[in-house]
Amino acid sequence: MIEWFAYAQVGIAVVAGLLCIVLGLAGRVPNDLVLGSLALVEVLLIGQVVVALVAPAVGNPPTGSLLEFWVYLVSAVLLPPAAALWALIDRGRWATVVCGVGALAVAVMVYRMLQIWTVQQA
């Protein structure tokens, strides 16, 4: 795992999450901005999948459990599409909030993944 990439990813997911929650509480239905921020979060997660596949091969192995890391990563990758699907079906203001909750959950999971990779002792 690349540390600055993970931190950037956490930061972007937090911003996206707060943005969606604020927009949702302001009464906005899911729009391009909401879905776009989720898409950005998802693209970065897919980038993280690539990093996680390559890193151990180039001398950057995880210190913690690789299985636990992948359970988090796969769960995180599933969240933005699930939230977006919800937004496409529901189209209410609370769907926007749900998108925000999803993005914040991704932020927490990426941070936890970073912990597993860097500081946790196996």
Binding site: S65, L67, E68, V71, Y72, S75, L78, L79, A83, W86, D90, G92, W94, A95, V97, V98, V101, G102, A105, M109
Partner: peptide, 28 residues
């Protein structure tokens, strides 16, 4: 309705996280 949907979403995420973690704990 309304904010109940957010509650369901948070429950869903928690269920996902707890299931994933407990699977790892049990397997490892």
């Amino acid at each position: 309705s309304g904010i109940g949907r957010v509650l369901v979403a948070v429950y869903g995420v928690l269920a996902l996280a707890a299931t994933g973690r407990s699977l790892v704990q049990i397997v490892e």
